[in-house]
Structures are given as C-alpha cells and as structure tokens.
C-alpha cells in the first residue's frame, strides 16, 4: 500500500523530498549509486549555445519583412493617379516624338526604320516619321528623293506634297521635288496616289508627273536607282530639272540660258567629279562651262 502511494519515489528523491536512506527502502544500494552517477553526469550537460540577443535581432529582421501594412486607400489613389499620369504622359510625349532625317546639298545618307526597312536619302531631302507604333502604322513624309527597301509587314505609306505612295514590302524610289513627282518600282508592287487617283506600278515600271503631265513608263531594268551608285541618269527630262539635280549634288549654283530650260535631256552625270559631270550635261547641247566662283558655274 505504501509502495502504491509513493510510486514516484525517484522523482521525490530527485527533488530532495526524500533522502538516500528513505530511498533505500525501495531500491538497492548499487542502484542508488548508479542514480547518483546519472544525476551528477546530467548536471554537467549544457545545451549548445543559444544567444537570445542575436536571436531577437534576427527575429526583428524577419518580422519587418513580413509586417503587413494596411493600405491607406486615399494615399493609394493619389499614388496610382501619379503613376498613371507619368506613364501615359511620357507615352504620349515620347510617342508623338517625330524622327527627322535631313540631307543638305551634296550629302546622301542611308538609315534603317524601326522594322529594318532601309532608306537611302538623296541630296537636299527630308524624311520625318513617328517611331512609336511603327509596326502597325508605317507612315512617313518625304520632301525630295529617297529609295526604300521595305520589309514585309503592314501597309507602308510615303506621304509627299504631291501624292502618296503605298506598298506592302518592296523596293522603290520616290522623287518629290517642286513640280516633279516620280515613283519607280524595283521589286513588288507599288500603289501611287496622285490627285486622288491611284496607280498600280509593277516592278520595272515608273510613274512620273512633270508639271501636271502624267507619264507612265515601263522601262527600267536596273536593280536600284542610279543615284545609289553616285550617278544621276535622265531620260527625256527637261534641262532645268537636270541642272537642278546637279546643283543639289555638288552644292553649286548654275546659271544657264532660258532657251535651254525646256529642252529634253537624256543621259547621266556622276556625283564624284564636277568637271566630268558638267561636261556630261554641256557637250550634248554644245555648251561650255566656266566657273565664275567656287560655287557658281555659268553655261554658255
């Protein structure tokens, strides 16, 4: 009965509630010796170090990361409005930014459009377009002369003061000078609009409007316009236009007799040597050229 009541005598002994002598009533002396050993050995145990201060710092760090902040709705609205304004505002301004390429006399450049279509821009010409959304809206405006190699894609439109040229992917040359509008197609199919009438121009054909006279020719065999190879060639062009082109290519002014203005010229001149070029355009008309100054030539 006593044993039943004091069932956990070892626990009581460990808590110093009963002494060794009392414990002997329950267990042998050998066993008591082992218990003593267990107790003294276990007294020396220590748990591997734990630094509460360091742990607290770590906890605070972790806690800040997971802290839930309640959303202040009005603040949020202002911030969202600001972000939206900035995003759309910058999109609007950047999107409406117009890219400009301009050449002066005796200068030629070539550049790529955003879709890798290439443009060669002849002397004294200008092209402007909007680079944003270029993929879906390929429009550009041209003053002067340019040669296009258009990558396949959506409708590609060249706007000029005289008419529009629309293609889907091809190579073509456009001239839009004062009183002269010319479209030459080298590959594919080009559609030109002049005075609200549109004309389809297949490869190897040209469309010319000279002082309101429309000419439609099927002549060229070249792969690209001659001016790309630094050469201007003409076929039955008025002399004034030929002279104007020479002025543009060499940045000079040329004076010549009004009599020759409307004569038709067929031939070409180079862009590399002004003497040879002048000979090329004067000899057929039995004219001589003299340099009045560096930048001024007189034909007689």
């Amino acid at each position: 009965m006593k044993r039943m009541k004091e069932k956990y005598f070892l626990a009581e002994w460990l808590a110093n509630e009963i002494s060794d002598t009392e414990l002997k009533e329950y267990v042998s002396e050998d066993e008591i010796r082992v218990y003593h050993k267990i107790v003294s050995a276990s007294n020396q145990f220590k748990v591997p170090s734990f630094n509460a201060d360091v742990a607290l710092e770590q906890l605070k760090l972790k806690n800040t990361k997971t802290t839930v902040r309640t959303l202040n709705f009005s603040k949020f609205i202002y911030r969202a409005a600001a972000v939206i304004t900035i995003v759309f505002g910058s999109y609007y301004f950047l999107g409406n930014q117009t890219q400009n390429y301009k050449t002066s006399s005796a200068e030629k450049i070539n550049f790529n459009l955003p879709d890798n279509s290439t443009v060669n821009l002849n002397a004294a010409s200008e092209i402007s377009f909007k680079s944003s959304n270029w993929k879906n809206n390929r429009n550009l405006s041209l003053h002067g002369e340019a040669y296009f190699k258009v990558a396949k894609g959506s409708k590609f439109t060249v706007k000029t003061p005289l008419g529009n040229v629309t293609v889907l992917g091809t190579q073509f040359n456009v001239v839009a000078r004062a009183n002269y509008f010319e479209v030459v197609c080298y590959e594919g199919l080009v559609s030109a609009t002049y005075k609200k009438k549109s004309v389809k121009i297949p490869a190897g054909s040209s469309f010319k409007v000279l002082s309101s006279n429309i000419k439609y020719e099927k002549t060229i065999n070249e792969a690209n316009p001659s001016w790309i190879q630094n050469n201007s060639s003409f076929k039955s062009m008025p002399y004034w236009y030929v002279v104007n082109e020479l002025e543009r290519q060499y940045n000079v002014t040329v004076k010549f007799n009004e009599i020759h203005k409307r004569k038709l010229f067929t031939g070409s001149f180079t862009h590399n040597n002004i003497e040879i070029a002048l000979k090329a355009i004067t000899i057929p008309f039995n004219l001589n050229y003299t340099f009045v100054t560096d930048k001024e030539v007189s034909l007689k």
Binding site: K7, Y8, F9, L10, A11, E12, L14, E31, V34, Y35, I38
Partner: peptide, 17 residues
C-alpha cells in the same frame, strides 16, 4: 511530471547497466 521523471530514471539506469 513526477511519473515521467521517475520512469525516466528507471529506464536510464536499466539501459546504462
């Protein structure tokens, strides 16, 4: 708790012996 401690000591002694 006393029961657990008591039994722990009994078990430890028998295992160690």
């Amino acid at each position: 708790v006393e029961k657990r401690i008591h039994n722990a000591l009994v078990n430890l002694r028998s295992v160690i012996e």
